[in-house]
Amino acid sequence: MRAKGWRELIREDFWPPPFCPGCGHGILMGAIMRAIVQTGLDPSRVALVAGIGCAGWIPTYIACDTLHTPHGRAIPHAAGIALTRPDLRVIVIGGDGDLSSIGGNHLIHAARRDLPLTVLCANNAIYGMTGGQTSPTTPPGERTATAPRGVGERPFDLCALVAGAGAGFVARGTVVRPQALEGLLGKALGHPGFSFVEVLTPCPTQVGRRKGLSPVDHLRTLGERTVPLARWRTLPSEERAARIPVGILRGGDEEGSWT
């Protein structure tokens, strides 16, 4: 039976979630609940699968069947569910470290296989829970606990990575624009094969504090840096480089190059 409102999706006996004040994961959690309601899915036919990391806690507080797995391993567990139970909608939720570092191999193979999964990656470009270490998406030059003199490696563009591996639906949103994010999640849930949504989100505790950004300023900067894909395409190339396009990047009307 479909849920009437997102509050039905709160796993009340586990509430409240443990996110730091100003963390984007609460907003993402709300967007997931609303997207499940809006797409008319029966919450008891939704399987949520997570790995380890702050974002991996999100499904714990949503009242669907939830598998909270070892670090990096959400996707292969989800594969076991999705392959045997086409009647269930399987959603993977994890952070950038979980899904693209330790779980990176699983991510590209799931995209290549076109497994019927929706993978949501809360990308805050840092390891939050373990104390602010460099992740595969930390921008060059940023100072982290493991790069005190600044990161010297190139980051992944996660959307380009999974698109390159064959993902049929790829989108990027931010927690700064929760309604737009909800829309993207809804579209991803409606995609029959492998769908991927990168969700840009702040980690005020491990990034904001280090940079001296208040949670509000942190969100504001993220908002300023991101531009809808259609507008991003019209920007001069210097400006494009400084901005991040958001929206449906593959599998929608505006499909085309964004890198």
Binding site: T69, P76, H77, A79, T84, H109
Partner: peptide, 26 residues
Amino acid sequence: GVFFQAEDEIAALAACVGASWAGFKS
């Protein structure tokens, strides 16, 4: 039944655990 050639042995057993919770002996 369902057969799955995984990307490595970690994924293989993880998929079995997922399938087991989906109700399949694995």
